[in-house]
């Protein structure tokens, strides 16, 4: 089984996770830029974070045979801090980078005017760069945030096929299905979706234009829930072909629209010894 996790924050995960993910069939990931628990207070913090997403993290992933791509954006929560507004000036140059396959995560957190401004500006950047967009839907007031997100997406003029609306559930999926946008689902141990609920939604809505991710980060989450959901699909009577559609072909199709998705497996760097994890350099 080959798995492409289209949304996972590997920066917050350990090398043990990479080992377990690779063993479970995860061959490719996309890491969206997001908040990191502790609010950042200046653009420099974001520049270093974005640099890690186009530098260190893909290298780290490659040690375990996992292809790593990123999405770049000022996230909605931190868009509310005026000290971080200048991050918007940094975003376009990162969108040119080789492994950046989308703009994201953008969207709403508390649905404020500052979030409106950042969302609209970054949708325009995506149109300019010819890149897909990853839209986060809020934890609170999800339905209102979703409807407003769909309106803003429509107003931007971006091709809906370039947009994934993420973190959907039974309540919010219908509104996205009525558009041309892709539907994203995050499978979490307790909150968001569970593997069995995801399987029920795949039964109801089919496997087209669907992305299923672990969204694993620094909170309670599990990078193997993609694999668990794939197994739940098989147990429920879906074919191996269906599983491959959801967990490989769909993310390849969606992010492939960037023209920058490269799934060539590079030979392990000469510096890595068989069986070792990340080498730790002198201090």
């Amino acid at each position: 089984m080959r798995i492409f996790d289209p949304h996972i924050h590997m920066t917050s995960r350990t090398t043990d996770d990479y080992v377990r993910m690779a063993a479970a069939g995860v061959r490719a990931v996309v890491e969206p830029a997001f908040w990191i628990g502790q609010p950042r207070t200046n653009p420099g913090s974001f520049a270093d974070y974005f640099d890690a997403l186009v530098g260190w993290e893909p290298y780290r992933a490659s040690q375990f045979g996992v292809r790593h791509h990123a999405t770049i954006a000022l996230n909605p929560k931190e868009a509310n801090d005026p000290r971080c507004t200048a991050v918007l000036d940094l975003v376009p140059r990162y969108l040119l980078k080789e492994n950046v396959v989308a703009v994201g995560e953008i969207g709403y957190d508390a649905i404020t005017p500052a979030e409106d401004a950042a969302f609209t500006a970054q949708l325009a950047m995506a149109v300019d760069a010819g890149l897909p967009v990853l839209v986060h839907t809020p934890h609170r007031e999800k339905d209102r945030g979703l409807r407003r997100s769909l309106d803003v997406v429509a107003e931007s003029g971006i091709d809906e096929g370039l947009v994934v609306i993420d973190h959907l559930n039974e309540v919010t999926v219908r509104a996205v299905r009525d558009t041309g946008c892709w539907a994203g689902f995050s499978i979490y141990p307790q909150t968001k979706m569970s593997p069995d609920r995801m399987v029920a939604l795949l039964r109801e809505y089919g496997t087209e234009r669907v992305l299923v991710n672990s969204a694993a980060d620094w909170g309670t989450s599990d990078p193997l829930l993609t694999r668990r959901t794939a197994e739940a699909m098989l147990a429920a009577g879906f074919s191996a072909e269906d599983v491959d559609t959801v967990f490989w072909r769909n993310p390849v199709t969606f992010y492939g629209q960037s023209g920058k998705l490269d799934l060539t497996v590079e030979p392990a760097p000469a510096a890595t010894f068989a069986g070792s994890s990340i080498a730790r350099g002198g201090s």
């Binding site: 530098g55 260190w56 510096a271 890595t272």
Partner: peptide
Amino acid sequence: RSNDARLVA
């Protein structure tokens, strides 16, 4: 200063 073997090399 990096820990990326390609850059160090």
